[in-house]
Amino acid sequence: MEAARIFLLIALFALSFSFSLGYDPSPLQDICVADKYSQVFVNGVACKNPNQATADDFYFPGLDNPGNTSNKLGSAVNLVNVEKLPGLNTLGISMARIDYAPYGLNPPHTHPRATEILVVLEGSLYVGFVTTDNKLFAKVLNKGDTFVFPIGMVHFQYNYGTTNAVAFAGLSSQNPGTIRVANALFGSKPPISDDVLTKTLMVDKKTVDYIQSQFQ
């Protein structure tokens, strides 16, 4: 019985330790404002002297302004991460405003370092994510509705309506990162071999070359 209890404690400790590794490290001091000019390379951003921190380090204006959606996708993302708001350093959080023109799309992408929670402020969105066993979880969201995209899952948002839509997202990392699926496949530098892409997508080389040309 005692051995079973010890084993259970060890298992719980290992689980909690591995879970913690999947997220930004916890802060060990009150503030650690990002020093963008530091020559020190760390997993994150080095701190500047706390005595030199100001209120502006924790302030970012402008999320009330609509993004420019006059592009091929009809969407615009204004991400407020540690690069724009130095006070986020070590806090494990960031946020974004996403604007969608009618039929605008925030295309399939992943955030390798963050879970995302999204709330619709205006309009309606069709959103979803795909798990590692290719199961789709999708929902139509209206004003005030919220949806969660688990860390690392490919997800998307599409404005199927005839009016503009606006959403805000919170992300569980100071620097969540974004990998757009299409850009990764067709816009990498140097490009992925045609042999790989034709077999992966089961299309001919001409089709691959055409799609690659759209990302140059």
Rank of each mutant, 00 (worst) to 15 (best):
V119K: 03
S16A: 09
S18I: 12
Y23F: 04
D56H: 15
P102L: 08
K84N: 05
R113M: 01
Y37V: 07
A114Q: 01
R113P: 03
K135N: 12
Y126C: 12
N78A: 02
N134Q: 00
K36T: 10
S75I: 03
P108H: 00
L73A: 10
A46R: 06
K135G: 08
N134L: 13
G74P: 03
M95N: 06
A114V: 04
N106G: 00
S20D: 11
D30P: 09
F129P: 09
V40H: 03
P112D: 01
H109V: 06
Y59W: 03
I117S: 05
F41W: 11
K135V: 14
Q39M: 15
S70G: 08
G74C: 00
K84T: 07
I31H: 02
A55G: 15
G62H: 10
N78C: 02
I31P: 00
N78S: 08
H111D: 04
S70P: 06
V127L: 14
V127P: 10
I93Y: 01
D64E: 13
G74S: 04
F19P: 01
V130I: 10
N68I: 04
A101M: 05
G92M: 06
T115R: 07
K72V: 14
Y126N: 14
L79Q: 07
G44H: 14
G104V: 02
P25Y: 13
L9K: 04
A34S: 12
N89C: 04
L118S: 05
A46G: 08
K36E: 13
L73V: 04
Q52K: 10
G87K: 10
Y103G: 08
C47L: 11
N81Q: 06
N49W: 01
N49A: 02
A96L: 04
A96S: 14
L105Q: 09
N78I: 01
L105A: 10
L9Y: 13
A53I: 11
D24A: 04
L63F: 07
A11G: 04
G92T: 03
L63M: 15
Q39N: 15
L21K: 13
F137P: 07
D133G: 02
N51L: 06
V80A: 07
T131D: 10
A114H: 01
T69P: 04
Y37Q: 15
L12A: 13
S94G: 04
G104Q: 11
N51F: 09
L88Q: 08
K36W: 00
L12H: 12
F129T: 10
G74A: 08
Y103V: 08
A76F: 12
G104A: 08
S16W: 15
